[in-house]
Amino acid sequence: MKNIVACIDNSDAAGAVCDAGSWISQRVDRPLVLLHVLDKSVYPAKMDLSGNLGLSSRTHLMEELADLDIQRSKLALEQGKLQLEEARKRVAGRGINTPELLQRHGHFVETLADLQEDTRILVLGRQGEDHHSTAREIGGNLEAVIRTLTCRILITPPGFKEPEKVLLAYDASATAKQVLYVIARSPLCKGLPFHLLMIGENTEKNQQLLEEAREEMQAQGHQDVTTALKQGDVESTLLSYQKEQQLDLIVMGAYGHSRIRQFLVGSTTTNLLRMSEVPILLMRQ
């Protein structure tokens, strides 16, 4: 059975990640895994200083530096265990009494890639603890994860509110149709009102494509489905509509196959992640 994997750290988003992971786990009835990764790039397991100084008289100094590095890794490991325990308590307060606690030492993106075969949805905060810029920025690890992994990823800003209304960004592309097919059949958003938003020219063809998408949703039991066709810049139009309609979750496809499409859609995705005040669920084909 595939798991819901929530990545926690010492950032402001850790609580939101726990809350989002708990909500998803209960909605889709899948086990919740709380994951803490001790990133090798930040906390190397050991430091090889041989040859750095080149003088035998400095051997003692090299040994002390190596010991300090090992101690730093041990402290980080213990801190990670404490963070996992706090996360366990938080999800218990939301009804998840037996989450799996998992701690790994390795490169962050590689670790997630190793786990993705058993991951149904990966939950991440918009910023990690190693990112010290403004609240609107996104962490470098997050961009790498989105570009590398093929599983579904939910990215949450600090503060998570259980979604009551959902926005699905729809452009009738093959990717969007696949996302529509999956989300319409998923228990994740069953019973929640949906808004299908297409950003493009107000043509009869686009109206027809939106209507077909609405009928597909309704055929799968989603009776409260609103469609909207708006013109304008993708990011600003989508986010403006989300705020106007007070929608709590954005669902969209991420990336395509061609390098050109990957760049364009990737840029759109990054901007949306930076500016959105609500979680975004990214789905791949």
Rank of each mutant, 00 (worst) to 15 (best):
K2H: 05
N3H: 11
S11E: 12
D19P: 01
D19C: 03
S22Q: 11
W23M: 07
S25K: 02
Q26N: 10
V28R: 05
L35V: 12
L38Q: 14
D39I: 04
A45M: 07
A45N: 09
L49N: 09
S50M: 09
S50D: 09
S50Y: 11
L53E: 10
S56P: 07
E64F: 05
S73C: 14
Q79L: 09
L82S: 14
L84V: 03
L84T: 04
E85D: 12
A87G: 02
A87W: 06
A87Y: 04
R88A: 15
R90P: 01
R94Y: 05
T98C: 06
E100S: 10
R104T: 13
R104E: 15
T111P: 00
T111G: 00
I121N: 00
L122D: 01
G125T: 09
E129D: 09
S133I: 08
A135K: 15
G139V: 03
R152V: 05
P157T: 07
F160I: 11
K161I: 08
E162W: 06
L167M: 13
D171N: 15
K177R: 15
Y181N: 03
Y181D: 12
I183S: 03
R185Q: 15
S186K: 00
C189G: 13
L192W: 06
H195S: 15
H195D: 14
L196Q: 11
L196Y: 06
M198F: 14
I199V: 14
T203Q: 05
Q208H: 08
L210M: 07
E211Q: 12
A219K: 15
A219Y: 15
G221W: 14
G221K: 06
T226Y: 05
L229F: 05
D233T: 10
L238A: 02
S240L: 12
E244Y: 03
Q245I: 04
Q245C: 08
D248K: 02
M252A: 06
G253W: 02
H257V: 14
S258P: 14
I260H: 09
F263E: 08
L273K: 03
S276N: 13
V278N: 01
